[in-house]
Amino acid sequence: MSSASNPVVEIEKLTKRYGEFVALDNLSLTLNRGDILGFIGPNGAGKTTTIRILVGLTRPTSGSARIAGSDCVADARKVRQLVGYMPDKFGSYDNMRVREYLDFFGAAYGIARKQRQLRVAEVLEVTNATWMQDRYVESLSHGMQQRIGIARTLLHNPDVLILDEPANGLDPQARIEMREILLRLASEGRTLIVTSHILPELARICDRVAIVANGQLKALGTLKEVTGQLTQRRTFEVQCLQSDQLPAVENIVKQFFHDDTEVSVSTAEGIVRFRTSASDELLSELLKQIVNSSSLITQFRELVGDLEEAFISATQMSASAEPAGAAK
């Protein structure tokens, strides 16, 4: 494992062109040990291209990608030992049982036979898949196959796990289990790069988010930072002690902003909710007015940004920036 102080994944000005089409355009990002990066973007945004470059399946046109200091193109063999990759397509072999399947990949990674047997048992346990070790791989359900896919990526104990759509097609129960597995892996100090279209799911597990669109990095940071960057309005809630005070608070908020601030009242929750682009100074002034009024409030809080909203903002921004008639 690499030292904690050095970045584990370094992507610098990564560009990939297929003829005239630019799949990746000067993409740069850095990840530290233990980070879980949610890598999101619309279809064809460049996520899979980035991932394929990181695992050595695609050569970049320019720029560089390094895993634990090793260049993904020049030191491809070393990088393969450092990275565990789960593509969106499972890649099963007919007539192979789960244990045989994992044993084969363990042998392919050069793990000695005795150590391999222990390792296979370990990864099956980590992914809660020990009970399916004698089942045929192709007879497993999608969710089970995804677990075996993760077990396969863990065989050689890599520093970095790159998972392409691990939650795709999973039922809610399997999704919860997948989330637990990923969080457990991150807690072991591994760096995870996870792509998904299920944004609420990503928001729950990722401590950092990168949004790409048209091959460009539109936003990178913590969930709060990204939603802050991409969504101009923040959502606040004022919780009142008694619901009969809600109209008064609502009036204060409306009169304070005098603009298109959206204000709504939830009588059942006893909450006045509003979305605004106002600065923190203005908000503290609003809070002061509410407190000075006769209303009894118990909470004034900002809600964590919505990743879906940020995603849509990013993709809309890139769509409006795209020249008319541009085609892939």
């Binding site: 063999r77 397509k89 890649g91 072999y93 990949f105 990674y109 050069g110």
Partner: peptide
């Protein structure tokens, strides 16, 4: 066809 080739490619084989 099965996607196994990419898995083989990312191994040290």
């Amino acid at each position: 066809e099965s996607g196994g080739w990419n898995l083989l490619r990312v191994t040290p084989l």
